[in-house]
Amino acid sequence: MALPIYASRLERLWYYTRLVICGLIFLFLVSPILIVMPLSFNAEPYFTFTEKMLAFDPEGYSLRWYDLLLTQPSVPNDVPRDAAWWAQVWSQAVWVNAAKNSIIIGFFSTILATVLGTIAALGLSRPEMPYRKAIMAILISPMIVPIIITATGLFFFYSASGLAGSYLGVIMAHATLGIPFVIITVTATLSGFDQSLTRAAASLGAPPTTTFFKVTMPLILPGVISGALFAFVTSFDEVVVVLFVAAHDQQTIPRQMWNGIREQISPAILSVATILVIVSIALLTTVELLRRRSDRLRGVTNS
Protein backbone atom coordinates (compact mmCIF):
# COMPACT_ATOMS: atom_id res chain seq x y z
CA MET A 1 0.00 0.00 0.00
CA ALA A 2 1.62 3.18 -1.11
CA LEU A 3 1.45 6.24 1.09
CA PRO A 4 -1.27 8.56 -0.28
CA ILE A 5 -0.16 12.00 -1.30
CA TYR A 6 -2.60 13.70 1.09
CA ALA A 7 -1.15 11.96 4.17
CA SER A 8 -0.40 14.21 7.10
CA ARG A 9 2.95 14.22 8.88
CA LEU A 10 1.59 12.04 11.68
CA GLU A 11 0.29 9.56 9.15
CA ARG A 12 3.62 9.48 7.40
CA LEU A 13 5.33 8.75 10.71
CA TRP A 14 2.85 6.00 11.52
CA TYR A 15 3.27 4.52 8.03
CA TYR A 16 7.02 4.11 8.45
CA THR A 17 6.68 2.95 12.06
CA ARG A 18 4.31 0.28 10.86
CA LEU A 19 6.75 -0.88 8.20
CA VAL A 20 9.45 -1.18 10.86
CA ILE A 21 7.10 -3.12 13.14
CA CYS A 22 6.22 -5.48 10.30
CA GLY A 23 9.91 -5.94 9.56
CA LEU A 24 10.56 -6.85 13.19
CA ILE A 25 7.71 -9.35 13.17
CA PHE A 26 9.10 -10.97 10.03
CA LEU A 27 12.46 -11.12 11.78
CA PHE A 28 10.75 -12.76 14.75
CA LEU A 29 9.24 -15.33 12.38
CA VAL A 30 12.37 -16.39 10.55
CA SER A 31 15.30 -15.67 12.84
CA PRO A 32 14.82 -18.73 15.07
CA ILE A 33 14.92 -20.90 11.98
CA LEU A 34 17.94 -19.23 10.41
CA ILE A 35 19.94 -18.92 13.63
CA VAL A 36 20.41 -22.67 14.00
CA MET A 37 22.19 -22.99 10.68
CA PRO A 38 25.43 -21.14 11.47
CA LEU A 39 25.43 -22.44 15.03
CA SER A 40 25.39 -26.02 13.81
CA PHE A 41 28.86 -25.43 12.33
CA ASN A 42 30.22 -24.36 15.70
CA ALA A 43 33.60 -25.91 16.53
CA GLU A 44 32.86 -25.63 20.25
CA PRO A 45 30.07 -27.40 22.12
CA TYR A 46 28.28 -24.13 22.85
CA PHE A 47 24.95 -22.77 21.74
CA THR A 48 26.14 -19.30 21.07
CA PHE A 49 28.44 -17.58 18.62
CA THR A 50 32.06 -17.86 19.73
CA GLU A 51 34.47 -15.00 19.12
CA LYS A 52 36.16 -16.97 16.38
CA MET A 53 32.83 -17.44 14.63
CA LEU A 54 32.04 -13.74 14.80
CA ALA A 55 35.49 -12.98 13.32
CA PHE A 56 34.75 -15.45 10.49
CA ASP A 57 37.83 -17.38 11.49
CA PRO A 58 37.69 -20.75 9.68
CA GLU A 59 38.92 -22.41 12.86
CA GLY A 60 35.73 -21.40 14.61
CA TYR A 61 33.69 -23.53 12.23
CA SER A 62 33.67 -27.25 11.81
CA LEU A 63 31.56 -30.15 10.63
CA ARG A 64 32.11 -32.17 13.80
CA TRP A 65 28.42 -32.15 14.82
CA TYR A 66 27.40 -33.48 11.42
CA ASP A 67 30.08 -36.11 11.73
CA LEU A 68 28.66 -37.06 15.11
CA LEU A 69 25.43 -38.08 13.40
CA LEU A 70 27.28 -40.86 11.59
CA THR A 71 29.17 -42.28 14.55
CA GLN A 72 28.09 -45.47 16.18
CA PRO A 73 28.61 -46.58 19.73
CA SER A 74 30.46 -49.80 18.81
CA VAL A 75 33.10 -48.41 16.48
CA PRO A 76 36.11 -46.32 17.57
CA ASN A 77 36.51 -42.99 15.87
CA ASP A 78 39.90 -43.51 14.19
CA VAL A 79 38.83 -46.36 11.91
CA PRO A 80 39.44 -45.61 8.19
CA ARG A 81 36.27 -44.61 6.39
CA ASP A 82 35.99 -47.30 3.73
CA ALA A 83 33.00 -49.10 2.30
CA ALA A 84 32.72 -51.36 5.33
CA TRP A 85 32.59 -48.36 7.63
CA TRP A 86 29.82 -46.78 5.61
CA ALA A 87 27.93 -50.06 5.55
CA GLN A 88 28.12 -50.11 9.31
CA VAL A 89 26.94 -46.52 9.51
CA TRP A 90 23.96 -47.48 7.40
CA SER A 91 23.02 -50.36 9.65
CA GLN A 92 24.03 -49.11 13.10
CA ALA A 93 24.31 -45.34 13.47
CA VAL A 94 21.55 -44.14 15.78
CA TRP A 95 20.51 -41.12 13.73
CA VAL A 96 20.64 -43.00 10.43
CA ASN A 97 18.33 -45.65 11.84
CA ALA A 98 16.01 -42.97 13.18
CA ALA A 99 15.91 -41.39 9.72
CA LYS A 100 15.14 -44.74 8.14
CA ASN A 101 12.28 -45.36 10.58
CA SER A 102 10.90 -41.87 10.05
CA ILE A 103 10.93 -42.29 6.29
CA ILE A 104 9.34 -45.75 6.37
CA ILE A 105 6.57 -44.63 8.72
CA GLY A 106 6.12 -41.34 6.86
CA PHE A 107 5.96 -43.03 3.46
CA PHE A 108 3.35 -45.63 4.30
CA SER A 109 1.19 -43.34 6.42
CA THR A 110 1.25 -40.77 3.58
CA ILE A 111 0.12 -43.39 1.05
CA LEU A 112 -2.66 -44.53 3.34
CA ALA A 113 -3.82 -41.00 4.17
CA THR A 114 -3.64 -39.78 0.57
CA VAL A 115 -5.49 -42.69 -1.02
CA LEU A 116 -8.28 -42.80 1.56
CA GLY A 117 -8.42 -39.01 1.84
CA THR A 118 -8.61 -38.36 -1.89
CA ILE A 119 -11.37 -40.90 -2.45
CA ALA A 120 -13.32 -39.45 0.45
CA ALA A 121 -12.78 -35.89 -0.79
CA LEU A 122 -14.30 -36.91 -4.14
CA GLY A 123 -17.41 -38.08 -2.31
CA LEU A 124 -17.49 -35.08 0.01
CA SER A 125 -17.37 -32.57 -2.82
CA ARG A 126 -20.43 -34.06 -4.50
CA PRO A 127 -23.49 -31.93 -3.82
CA GLU A 128 -25.67 -34.97 -3.17
CA MET A 129 -23.47 -36.24 -0.33
CA PRO A 130 -25.71 -36.93 2.71
CA TYR A 131 -24.72 -35.57 6.18
CA ARG A 132 -21.88 -33.73 4.51
CA LYS A 133 -21.14 -31.26 7.31
CA ALA A 134 -21.25 -33.78 10.13
CA ILE A 135 -18.98 -36.22 8.33
CA MET A 136 -16.57 -33.48 7.38
CA ALA A 137 -16.42 -32.39 11.02
CA ILE A 138 -15.54 -35.92 12.09
CA LEU A 139 -12.86 -36.30 9.42
CA ILE A 140 -11.20 -32.99 10.32
CA SER A 141 -11.33 -33.60 14.07
CA PRO A 142 -7.93 -35.38 14.40
CA MET A 143 -6.37 -32.02 13.58
CA ILE A 144 -8.37 -30.18 16.26
CA VAL A 145 -8.31 -32.66 19.13
CA PRO A 146 -5.17 -32.07 21.23
CA ILE A 147 -2.47 -34.55 20.33
CA ILE A 148 -2.08 -35.70 23.92
CA ILE A 149 -5.70 -36.84 23.97
CA THR A 150 -5.28 -38.75 20.71
CA ALA A 151 -2.09 -40.33 22.02
CA THR A 152 -3.76 -41.31 25.30
CA GLY A 153 -6.69 -42.89 23.48
CA LEU A 154 -4.40 -44.75 21.08
CA PHE A 155 -2.33 -46.00 24.01
CA PHE A 156 -5.37 -47.67 25.59
CA PHE A 157 -6.65 -48.93 22.23
CA TYR A 158 -3.33 -50.34 21.06
CA SER A 159 -2.43 -51.99 24.34
CA ALA A 160 -5.83 -53.69 24.29
CA SER A 161 -5.61 -54.76 20.65
CA GLY A 162 -1.93 -55.73 20.53
CA LEU A 163 -0.93 -53.04 18.05
CA ALA A 164 1.35 -51.28 20.54
CA GLY A 165 4.98 -51.28 19.50
CA SER A 166 4.25 -52.32 15.90
CA TYR A 167 4.97 -50.39 12.75
CA LEU A 168 1.39 -50.91 11.62
CA GLY A 169 0.11 -49.16 14.73
CA VAL A 170 2.31 -46.10 14.29
CA ILE A 171 1.56 -45.92 10.56
CA MET A 172 -2.20 -46.05 11.16
CA ALA A 173 -1.97 -43.40 13.86
CA HIS A 174 0.09 -41.08 11.66
CA ALA A 175 -2.25 -41.62 8.72
CA THR A 176 -5.15 -40.55 10.96
CA LEU A 177 -3.31 -37.35 11.86
CA GLY A 178 -2.47 -36.62 8.21
CA ILE A 179 -5.95 -37.24 6.80
CA PRO A 180 -7.44 -33.81 7.72
CA PHE A 181 -4.72 -32.09 5.68
CA VAL A 182 -5.41 -34.27 2.64
CA ILE A 183 -9.16 -33.68 2.96
CA ILE A 184 -8.72 -29.90 3.26
CA THR A 185 -6.34 -29.50 0.33
CA VAL A 186 -8.13 -31.89 -2.03
CA THR A 187 -11.63 -30.53 -1.33
CA ALA A 188 -10.22 -27.02 -1.86
CA THR A 189 -8.90 -28.12 -5.27
CA LEU A 190 -12.16 -29.86 -6.11
CA SER A 191 -14.22 -26.79 -5.19
CA GLY A 192 -12.94 -25.10 -8.34
CA PHE A 193 -13.38 -28.22 -10.40
CA ASP A 194 -15.71 -27.92 -13.38
CA GLN A 195 -18.17 -30.81 -13.01
CA SER A 196 -19.28 -30.50 -16.63
CA LEU A 197 -15.94 -32.05 -17.62
CA THR A 198 -16.86 -35.36 -16.02
CA ARG A 199 -20.34 -35.17 -17.57
CA ALA A 200 -18.74 -34.54 -20.96
CA ALA A 201 -16.52 -37.59 -20.48
CA ALA A 202 -19.54 -39.67 -19.47
CA SER A 203 -21.54 -38.47 -22.45
CA LEU A 204 -18.69 -39.58 -24.69
CA GLY A 205 -19.01 -43.06 -23.24
CA ALA A 206 -16.22 -43.17 -20.67
CA PRO A 207 -16.88 -45.40 -17.65
CA PRO A 208 -16.44 -43.67 -14.25
CA THR A 209 -12.94 -45.12 -13.65
CA THR A 210 -11.68 -43.90 -17.01
CA THR A 211 -13.20 -40.49 -16.34
CA PHE A 212 -11.45 -40.39 -12.99
CA PHE A 213 -8.01 -41.37 -14.24
CA LYS A 214 -8.09 -39.47 -17.55
CA VAL A 215 -10.03 -36.32 -16.63
CA THR A 216 -10.38 -35.73 -12.90
CA MET A 217 -7.06 -37.05 -11.64
CA PRO A 218 -4.74 -34.95 -13.82
CA LEU A 219 -6.63 -31.80 -12.82
CA ILE A 220 -6.65 -32.40 -9.08
CA LEU A 221 -3.18 -33.96 -8.95
CA PRO A 222 -1.45 -30.80 -7.64
CA GLY A 223 -3.89 -30.63 -4.74
CA VAL A 224 -3.42 -34.32 -4.04
CA ILE A 225 0.36 -33.95 -4.00
CA SER A 226 0.25 -30.95 -1.66
CA GLY A 227 -2.07 -32.89 0.60
CA ALA A 228 0.35 -35.81 0.53
CA LEU A 229 3.26 -33.53 1.40
CA PHE A 230 1.29 -32.10 4.33
CA ALA A 231 0.53 -35.63 5.50
CA PHE A 232 4.19 -36.60 5.17
CA VAL A 233 5.38 -33.58 7.14
CA THR A 234 2.79 -34.28 9.82
CA SER A 235 4.10 -37.80 10.23
CA PHE A 236 7.74 -36.78 9.92
CA ASP A 237 7.32 -34.21 12.69
CA GLU A 238 5.14 -36.21 15.04
CA VAL A 239 6.59 -37.24 18.40
CA VAL A 240 3.84 -37.57 21.01
CA VAL A 241 2.02 -40.54 19.49
CA VAL A 242 5.38 -42.23 18.85
CA LEU A 243 6.34 -41.72 22.49
CA PHE A 244 3.08 -43.25 23.66
CA VAL A 245 2.56 -46.21 21.33
CA ALA A 246 5.87 -47.11 19.67
CA ALA A 247 8.31 -49.70 20.94
CA HIS A 248 11.54 -48.58 22.56
CA ASP A 249 13.68 -49.51 19.56
CA GLN A 250 11.39 -47.67 17.15
CA GLN A 251 13.33 -44.43 17.19
CA THR A 252 12.31 -41.72 14.78
CA ILE A 253 14.06 -38.42 14.11
CA PRO A 254 11.66 -36.32 16.23
CA ARG A 255 11.81 -38.85 19.05
CA GLN A 256 15.59 -38.86 18.94
CA MET A 257 15.54 -35.06 19.03
CA TRP A 258 13.07 -35.09 21.90
CA ASN A 259 15.36 -37.40 23.88
CA GLY A 260 18.34 -35.28 22.98
CA ILE A 261 16.68 -32.06 24.14
CA ARG A 262 15.40 -33.54 27.38
CA GLU A 263 18.55 -35.38 28.39
CA GLN A 264 21.56 -33.44 27.28
CA ILE A 265 21.28 -30.94 24.52
CA SER A 266 24.30 -31.06 22.23
CA PRO A 267 24.99 -29.15 19.03
CA ALA A 268 24.38 -32.41 17.17
CA ILE A 269 20.69 -31.52 17.58
CA LEU A 270 21.37 -28.29 15.70
CA SER A 271 22.91 -30.13 12.78
CA VAL A 272 19.81 -32.33 12.55
CA ALA A 273 17.69 -29.18 12.82
CA THR A 274 19.60 -27.59 9.95
CA ILE A 275 19.05 -30.64 7.75
CA LEU A 276 15.35 -30.57 8.61
CA VAL A 277 15.09 -26.86 7.81
CA ILE A 278 16.60 -27.51 4.38
CA VAL A 279 14.11 -30.34 3.85
CA SER A 280 11.23 -28.06 4.81
CA ILE A 281 12.43 -25.33 2.46
CA ALA A 282 12.44 -27.90 -0.34
CA LEU A 283 8.93 -29.06 0.58
CA LEU A 284 7.62 -25.50 0.81
CA THR A 285 9.01 -24.69 -2.62
CA THR A 286 7.38 -27.81 -4.07
CA VAL A 287 3.99 -27.00 -2.57
CA GLU A 288 4.18 -23.41 -3.74
CA LEU A 289 5.01 -24.45 -7.30
CA LEU A 290 2.21 -27.01 -7.25
CA ARG A 291 -0.27 -24.43 -6.02
CA ARG A 292 0.59 -22.09 -8.87
CA ARG A 293 0.34 -24.94 -11.37
CA SER A 294 -3.03 -25.93 -9.96
CA ASP A 295 -4.29 -22.36 -10.21
CA ARG A 296 -3.15 -22.21 -13.84
CA LEU A 297 -4.78 -25.54 -14.67
CA ARG A 298 -8.08 -24.46 -13.16
CA GLY A 299 -7.89 -21.14 -14.90
CA VAL A 300 -7.78 -19.11 -11.69
CA THR A 301 -5.98 -15.90 -12.38
CA ASN A 302 -4.54 -13.89 -9.57
CA SER A 303 -5.44 -10.26 -9.67
Partner: peptide, 10 residues
Protein backbone atom coordinates in the same frame (compact mmCIF):
# COMPACT_ATOMS: atom_id res chain seq x y z
CA UNK B 1 6.54 -25.93 7.40
CA UNK B 2 9.50 -26.25 9.71
CA UNK B 3 9.49 -29.04 12.25
CA UNK B 4 8.02 -28.08 15.60
CA UNK B 5 10.96 -29.58 17.44
CA UNK B 6 13.39 -27.59 15.32
CA UNK B 7 11.61 -24.36 16.18
CA UNK B 8 11.44 -25.26 19.86
CA UNK B 9 15.12 -26.16 19.85
CA UNK B 10 16.09 -22.88 18.26
Amino acid sequence: WTSLLVRTTS
